[in-house]
Design a protein around this nucleic acid. Sequence first.
DNA 1: TTTCATACTTGTAACGATTACAAAATTGTA
DNA 2: TACAATTTTGTAATCGTTACAAGTATGAAA
Lengths: 136, 136
Amino acid sequence: MIDFKELLKEHGIPPSLQRIKILEYLHDFNTHPTADVIYQALMNEMPTLSKTTVYNTLKAFAEKGVIVELSLFENEVRYEYNTTPHIHFKCIKCNIIYDISESFECLKNKEIEGHKVLEHHIYLKGICKNCRDSEE
Amino acid sequence: MIDFKELLKEHGIPPSLQRIKILEYLHDFNTHPTADVIYQALMNEMPTLSKTTVYNTLKAFAEKGVIVELSLFENEVRYEYNTTPHIHFKCIKCNIIYDISESFECLKNKEIEGHKVLEHHIYLKGICKNCRDSEE
DNA sequence: TTTCATACTTGTAACGATTACAAAATTGTA
DNA sequence: TACAATTTTGTAATCGTTACAAGTATGAAA
Ligand SMILES: [Mn+2]
Ligand SMILES: [Mn+2]
Ligand SMILES: [Zn+2]
Ligand SMILES: [Zn+2]
């Protein structure tokens, strides 16, 4: 059981109830939700929650390195709890975003052609195993 | 000198004046412009050009494989003439998007963890050579 | 405990990129 | 030339996101 309150404090973020709930959601579901998905999910137990708070919170988390911000295709920003670099695969049929466990040469914190790399993202697009199987 | 009219026909796209001009722009500048950048640039010589036409044309080009659609960070779709897979680096200071010539193992058209890969994108973010030099 | 400044949350309005849509213009073909 | 099909245009609508101002909670100092 992770103490999200502590985790936030360690990152210099005062742990409000809203912030804890949003971080909890990201950890528990461990998917790649948009701000709106999180908002809709927390609406039930927090009826007064504001969408603005969700947006602000996610942006603040990402800036402090608590979570990762993804911008993969289709003009929707997504967030995830897993901050270790990994490959993303988006299925063009079912729109599910898969984590690919295959390792790769990460250029993060390296210098390439004179440029200093701070982030490294690999995005794949195609048809997932499930959709291929059900196509037959 | 490329015959853009022919090029479009070969891809099954009837070559209207607007389409030829947009393709010409992408080829001549060879950067990673947004639809709006192209629209603004062509406004002078084509005063009646509609922004909708630019959006529609770029989308059609990308679908037919004439150009590539990029969705790298910051929620802005960009397009480019160069359809060969390569790495992109965006500088967080000057916002320029660089092409990285370094080669990499491309997973396009391969199968990974059961998924069929149709597109492969690598996006880097950091501080470019120019901005680092001028920081001193 | 009260006071007060600060930080956080909320709700609404505004924004910006993109898309939908219908009318006007153009095109290719008979 | 006639005409149907396609393309372009301009405007309105949409959607994700952000700005902003007012309300609320928090936590330290008195
Ligand atoms: Mn992931
Ligand atoms: Mn490029
Ligand atoms: Zn799928
Ligand atoms: Zn730069």
